[in-house]
Design a protein around this nucleic acid. Structure first.
Lengths: 201, 201
DNA sequence: TATCGATTGGCACCAGGTATCAATAGGAAC
DNA sequence: GTTCCTATTGATACCTGGTGCCAATCGATA
């Protein structure tokens, strides 16, 4: 109703855009009760790009992350995979993976990379982690690139349990070691699997 | 160079858009050597929306996933916490946590809940998982609510390592069991911690 | 030869802006 | 009071990346 001060309006504007980046200038005039020119001057001052640019940035971000890190699927980028033998995946520790106070990676991310790889390397339709024995050898810090290497130790019985050993390194230094027991439903799949399709883990 | 048939061009177009959804019609005319009108008729026939709509869809998808998956902080909601003694957290298995084919939760989410809780229950400034020995007792499925209970077994030496045992249940049924060894930097903190602030794990 | 699908050109129009200039309101300083 | 300054608003031209529509052309085919 009553007009806000410029400062207050700028705060409001920032908040509104953050909450809903899909707002057009016209919709913002309704919410902030000022003219569209004022909205545009405000965006200029606050360096808030226009709607289309905002959408484009979001799309690019999601596109990039889909390419390199399908977050809800595999943790880490699998760069080499020899089914029922070995595999390698890369995972870079970023802001969102660390304790903000110490800059040290939360354990479950390091585990997730290893677990993802251990499951991916199993050549079967359904593969599930049954148990694991893991050691966090040294803390991993923000910015470090984790290289996980998995080796299938016993592809053993056609059906049942396989053992997979995973080592994670930062450079030459070992940071994680895990022994996974993976449950497999059936026998190995003939030919190709969906591993590369990102559907295994 | 030479013109492709309509059918071939349509295949090419689909492929190009899939590879790079950021292409404008003008850029497509360069790539396919036909007029911009043809490109637009083709998109119409193939139901390929215009650039801005494509970007908007991608932006919405990424926006939704950011909203629904706060993977970066604590996994699970801590509902009870007695520092250096015990803790309880809840975690519901949703679409984004399961293998799409089987509806079974990815192991690292179940682990993450237990790991988060094991670290949160430790009354110290810095607490890190040193090692863990875990068993996935039975698969957890979409929609199931996991109740993790952590017990500090040896708050032991003021400085150094603590053992935390975590059991995860769905209803009465045990689905996960883990023995965690947690490294703690200092002695216990006096009074409050930041556990409720979501900054511990 | 007539006809038909595929292709192209042209024009009006749209959303959601940028860029720029001018007008107005309101308060503070002189 | 008058001047000065900021904030706000109005108005216009222009831009991109389209949609929608109509007409013209080309080439093969009946």
């Amino acid at each position: 109703m009553e007009r806000l001060s410029k400062r207050e309006r700028h705060q409001q504007l920032n908040k509104l855009i953050e909450e809903n980046p899909f707002l057009t200038d016209r919709e913002l005039t309704r919410l902030l009760k000022v003219s569209i020119q004022t909205i545009r001057l405000d965006r200029l001052e606050l360096s808030i790009p226009e709607l289309r640019e905002r959408l484009k940035m979001m799309a690019e971000r999601s596109y990039d992350s889909v390419r390199s890190l399908p977050l809800d699927e595999v943790i880490g980028e699998i760069v080499d995979l020899q089914l029922d033998k070995s595999g390698i995946s890369l995972f870079e520790i970023r802001e969102e993976h660390v304790f903000s106070r110490s800059g040290i990676a939360r354990g479950h991310y390091v585990f997730a990379q290893a677990n993802s790889l251990a499951v991916a390397v199993i050549n079967d339709e359904v593969a599930l982690t049954a148990s694991a024995d893991i050691r966090f050898v040294r803390p991993v810090r923000l910015g470090e690139k984790c290289i996980a290497k998995a080796y299938v130790r016993s592809s053993g019985s056609q059906r049942g349990l396989s053992k997979v050993e995973v080592f994670t390194y930062v450079g030459e230094e070992k940071v994680f070691h895990g022994n996974f027991v993976i449950y497999r439903s059936h026998t190995a799949i003939a030919g190709e699997t969906e591993a590369e399709g990102g559907n295994i883990l």
